[in-house]
Every structure is written in C-alpha cells, then in structure tokens.
C-alpha cells in the first residue's frame, strides 16, 4: 500500500518535472514545479519526515513559489510567444549530459553504506509516534547543530538586506 502511494507520487513528481522544463510559459512551468513539490512532500511523509513535509508545503510551495509567480507577474512574462529552448544541437548536448548525470547518480545510489546504518528499521516511525513529529528533529537541531542554526538567522537577515539593496532603484 505504502509502496503503491510512493510510486504513484514518484510518477507524478517526474512527469511534472518534465512538464516544468518543457512548457513554454513561465507561469505553466511554475505551476508544474509546485505539483512536483507537492508530490515530493507526500514522499517525505512516506519516509517518516512529517515535519519536513509540512515545511516543504509552507516554505517551498507556499513562499518561494509565490515569489516566483510574483516576479513573473511583475516582469510581465506570462504570455511568451517565442520559445526560449535552445536549438536542436543544444538540446541533444543537454540530453546527453542529463542522461550522463543520471547514470552517474544511479551508480552512486547502488553503493549505500550499509555498515553505517545506525537506526533499526521502523525506528524513526516509532520515534515519531512516541515523541511527535517535531521533537526528534528539534532535539538534534537545538543541540548538535545550534551554531549553524543561529548562523542561518544571520544569513536570512543578510538576504533580506541584500534583496532590498539590489532591487531598489536608488540606494
């Protein structure tokens, strides 16, 4: 049952991603990308990452994709008549390189470090049932990764300031 849901969403994600890179209109591309992000969120739930799935829907499908659509609207790119695809030579080279990357990654996925597996099967699911969806993530985030977590706050502040400075007409 779980596997069937997983494969269905994997199919939706892959088809939507292909539609995203082939649609001519940026708005259509953005909407297909949102579809991919939602399907990935479902896969996150099936992989026992409920909190990350919620974040995915809120941050990616919500905030970031709204930003994309907002910029497309602001620059008035909605109805592009001319395609921005490269010529057939560029497409063939792109396809060859894409297939090459996929083969490489496929080989890498086959060498999973089995001896380093720390959690027994179903352990994360049991932790989620016992402690809730957020506690297992927060436990690590606020202890082991406290300094990186605080640094992301500075990063976001820098990004806010940088975006304002770059987008202003007169600084």
């Amino acid at each position: 049952m779980l596997e069937a849901v997983f494969w269905a969403n994997a199919g939706i994600a892959i088809v939507s991603a292909l539609a995203c890179i082939t649609r001519r209109s940026p708005v259509a591309s953005a909407l297909w990308l949102i579809m991919t992000l939602f399907a990935t969120a479902v896969m996150f739930v099936l992989l026992d990452a409920h909190f990350i799935a919620v974040l995915q829907v809120m941050v990616y499908s919500g905030a970031i994709m709204v930003l994309f659509l907002f910029v497309i609207m602001l620059l008035n790119l909605g109805d592009q008549s001319a395609t921005d695809m490269k010529g057939w030579f560029g497409r063939v080279v792109g396809l060859a390189l894409g297939v090459f990357v996929m083969v490489e990654l496929w080989v890498i996925t086959k060498v999973v470090p089995v001896d380093q597996i720390r959690l027994p099967a179903g352990e994360l699911n049991r932790m989620t049932v016992d402690e809730g969806a957020i506690a297992p993530v927060a436990q690590v985030l606020y202890t082991t990764y406290l300094l990186p977590f605080l640094l992301t706050a500075i990063l976001l502040l820098a990004a806010i300031a940088g975006a304002v400075v770059l987008a202003k007409r007169e600084v």
Partner: peptide, 11 residues
C-alpha cells in the same frame, strides 16, 4: 529529478 533539473538548466 536531479537529472531533469540539470537538463532544464542546459536546454
């Protein structure tokens, strides 16, 4: 999915 992303950047 990663390869599709690479392909999109390239084409």
């Amino acid at each position: 999915l990663f390869s599709i992303g690479v392909l999109g950047v390239l084409i």
